[in-house]
Amino acid sequence: MNILRARSGAVAYSKSQLFFLVILRVSIGWHFLYEGITKLMNPDWTSYGYLLDSGWIFEGVFQAMANNPAVLGVVDFANAWGLVLIGVSLILGLFSRPAAIGGIILLALYYLSHPPFTGLEYAVPSEGKYLWIDKNLIEMLALAVLYVFPTGLRLGLDRFFLRNNKY
C-alpha cells in the first residue's frame, strides 16, 4: 500500500505527500538555522537598525525595544538562538510542531514590523516591493501548513521521543 500511516493511526499521507512535506520542513529549518548562525557568528550583529526602521502601527513598540539596551540585548539573544533552535528542530523533526509555532511567531514579528503595505517605506534593502503578501508571510503560512500536516512522527526524531504522542 502506498500509504504511510502515523503510528497512532492519524491521517495517512501518500509517499509523495510525505516526501514534499518533509522537504518543506527541512528547507525551512535550513533557512532558519542559517539566519540564526549568521547572526551568532557576527559579533557586530544587532537588530537595532531593523527595529528602528519599523513601520505601521507597531512602529512605536519596535522602536522602544531598539532604544532600550536591556530589552535589545534580550531581543537579539532570543532572536538569534530562537532561529537556531527552530531550525534544528525542523530539520531533525524533533518537537517539530512547537518549533513551527515558534517560527510562526518570529515571522509574524518580522512581518508586523515591516508589513509590505502601500505607502510604507523601509531602509532595509529588499529585492523589490511586495503588495501585502511577502516572503515572510509565505514562509509563515508554510509553517502553518506543516503544523496541521505534521511529519515529525513519520520521518523525524519525534517518532522516537514522542512515540506515545498522538498527532
Partner: peptide
C-alpha cells in the same frame, strides 16, 4: 507503545539527521 523500537523505526526517526551534517 511498549517501547520496543525496530531498526526500521530507528531509521525513520533519524532520516533527516544527515541534513544537519550537510548544513
Amino acid at each position: 507503545s511498549q517501547g520496543r523500537f525496530s531498526r526500521r523505526e530507528l531509521l525513520k526517526s533519524l532520516a533527516t539527521v544527515p541534513v544537519l551534517g550537510a548544513f
